[in-house]
């Protein structure tokens, strides 16, 4: 995991940069991807991010939210953010439309450890909108496809209509990513897998579990059972990575909101090696 924070220490962490919604793409019901570009080309040129990191998106007078970047880290001139309408800021953002102006500060937080996982088989397990923070990792893995072993994406959604980025699956498959999906509830026309995402994991044949890494992002309960299944499959705890979520306000470890036991999700996470947070994940209401 790389922390970009040190490089930012001389900059006022509260300074947001002007950005514009360049394109809005409807994804699934209530979810859209907003491609953001910086107004200032110099800032755009300086900006880079790692898979799993997030930005703070700011609508003056409305508020600010933490959203993971869902685009290709090699293509940082356009920053896609896949967002579900859930509260004031996301609702207002949906109304803003293409050409709308907003503030952006970031990137913040830790990232999926792609470099440390070279030569390994890698399993990505996502639930619902949890695929968004993993998509940059997919792009990164496929850019350097020959550096990794078997690559698998196990993706679960409540309904077929909730599956994100479906138009990309065939392309990903052609580049060497085994994409498997499952849904909780069947609707007309679905003849794929039904059931929780861990059933896909349990079914998976792992040629070398000890040399396999797993990245997971989704509801905490889903990640919890995914981790338990992965341990039973023989994947070592040091190779398990989770992306956690808490309320973020400052994004730089100064406001206290996102604390989870000793961790600040914003600056120590959101991506954690599982063994670092294993004991606190068990505590109710922490």
């Amino acid at each position: 995991m790389t922390n970009m924070a040190a490089a930012c220490s001389t900059i006022d962490p509260w300074l947001a940069h002007r950005a514009t919604v360049d394109r809005m793409t409807a994804e699934t019901p209530g979810v859209a991807t907003y491609d953001l570009v910086f107004a200032d080309t110099e800032i755009a040129g300086r900006y880079s991010f790692l898979p799993g990191q997030f930005n703070m998106l700011y609508l003056p007078g409305v508020g600010e939210i933490a959203i993971s970047i869902s685009g290709d880290p090699a293509e940082s001139s356009r920053l896609p953010h896949t967002i579900r309408v859930a509260g004031n800021v996301t609702r207002e953002l949906a109304r803003l439309g293409e050409g709308g102006s907003l503030g952006l500060r970031g990137p913040f937080g830790s990232s999926w450890p792609l470099d440390d996982c070279r030569k390994k088989d890698i399993i990505l397990v996502a639930g619902g909108i949890g695929l968004a923070p993993l998509r940059p990792a997919i792009y990164g893995l496929l850019h350097d496809r020959d550096q990794f072993g078997q690559l698998t994406l196990l993706y679960g959604s409540r309904t077929p209509a909730g599956l994100l980025y479906t138009q990309e699956y065939d392309h990903w498959r052609s580049q060497g990513l085994d994409v498997q999906t499952t849904v909780d509830r069947v609707t007309d026309g679905w003849n794929g897998n039904v059931g929780v995402v861990t059933t896909l994991l349990e079914r998976l044949v792992l040629p070398q579990p000890e040399n396999t890494a797993l990245f997971t992002c989704g509801p905490e309960v889903m990640m919890w059972y995914t981790i338990q299944s992965a341990r039973e499959c023989g994947i070592p705890e040091r190779n398990l990575f989770v992306s956690l979520e808490r309320n973020m306000n400052c994004a730089v470890g100064l406001c206290g909101h996102c604390q989870f036991g000793p961790e600040f999700i914003c600056k120590d996470g959101p991506v954690f090696r599982y063994d670092r947070v294993a004991s606190i994940l068990k505590v109710h209401d922490l």
């Binding site: 300074l15 947001a16 002007r18 003056p60």
Partner: peptide
């Protein structure tokens, strides 16, 4: 934040 012709001026 101050709204201008080109969008928000953020300081």
């Amino acid at each position: 934040a101050d709204r201008g012709d080109a969008g928000w001026d953020l300081r």
